[in-house]
């Protein structure tokens, strides 16, 4: 409000002031929109697989300072910092298991190196960071394309299964009979969602041209069951659902609420066009 006097005194100055303010604001808005768009575009990489211990993608992006210390800590050159133009948020670490998978180091040097907590030791340890347990790693989830998996053709492959560091736990074999030959079984690899670490050793090993088993981020790979039902046979399933339960959302059939609906004159529901 201190500008009031100036306005009175100098009409030109006042106009210039406002016009500069407006131009500045416009520039900021325009710049912000373009800039924000650029950032959003880069952020829009739902397929990025983050290092062991990474928080959920949104939390991760809010914490990763893009220093590459995890990248340098990895003895296998598994991790890469996204370069500009890679389609992933520039400077953030990720892995491409088909090229180099994560070997699940027991000392998890990548997570340990992270200065910001974007890779969180609590997620890959028991008792909150004190005892590392790399098997808790959840880089993503291995997903199978049975259409292109030659084990599903009946061939003896299961290379992915044998490559899995958690063999018989994260990937198991499902044995079914091959009706066509009548004397061979199919040994079908099956990923156990709750155990798979997403290390991608299976993806790397897969012997078809484009891997028929591949790691996807959980956000992409997983469905979600609502909070309105709890498995009766599973003592701890209730932990899965949120405390409010899931009874709230309903389809509003009546449209106007029960009373209005009941008082509406038309009898007999018909599906009408308008």
């Amino acid at each position: 409000m201190s500008g009031a006097k100036d306005m009175d005194r100098n009409e030109t100055g006042r106009r210039e002031f406002f016009s500069r303010l407006a131009r500045g604001a416009a520039a900021a808005v325009a710049g912000g929109v373009v800039w924000g768009g650029l950032v959003r575009e880069g952020q829009n990489a739902p397929l990025a697989l983050r290092p062991p211990g990474a928080l959920s993608e949104s939390e991760f992006l809010a914490k990763c300072i893009r220093c590459g210390l995890c990248v340098e800590a990895c003895p296998y050159d598994t991790l890469q910092l996204a370069g500009p133009g890679s389609g992933e948020p520039t400077g953030t670490p990720s892995l491409k298991p088909r090229e180099v998978p994560c070997y699940l180091c027991t000392d998890i040097p990548c997570t340990v190196a992270c200065p910001t907590g974007a890779l969180d030791l609590a997620l890959v340890s028991t008792d909150n960071g004190r005892t590392l347990d790399v098997n808790q790693t959840r880089i993503g989830l291995a997903v199978m394309d049975y259409h292109n998996c030659i084990a599903a053709w009946g061939l003896r492959c299961d290379a992915c299964y044998r490559a899995c560091p958690l063999i018989d736990k994260a990937i198991t074999l499902e044995h079914t009979r091959n009706e066509r030959t009548g004397r061979h079984a199919m040994l079908l690899p099956k990923v156990q969602t709750d155990v798979c670490t997403g290390c991608g050793l299976c993806e790397r090993a897969c012997i078809v041209e484009e891997a028929a088993i591949f790691v996807l981020p959980h956000e992409v790979a997983l469905g979600k069951v609502g909070d309105n039902y709890v498995r009766g046979w599973d003592e701890v399933d209730q932990q899965r659902v949120n405390p409010d339960g899931g009874a709230a959302d309903q389809v509003d059939q009546s449209g106007a609420g029960a009373l209005d609906y009941l008082n509406d004159g038309v009898l007999g529901g018909e599906v009408d066009d308008d």
Binding site: G154, L155, R156, C157, N178, R180, T181, G182, I207
Partner: peptide, 19 residues
């Protein structure tokens, strides 16, 4: 391709055979 007429494997192979 695996030879469907071969009694041993009836058209199947392992991954070495595959290659």
């Amino acid at each position: 391709k695996g030879d469907p007429a071969a009694p041993v494997n009836r058209g199947l192979n392992c991954i070495k055979g595959y290659f």
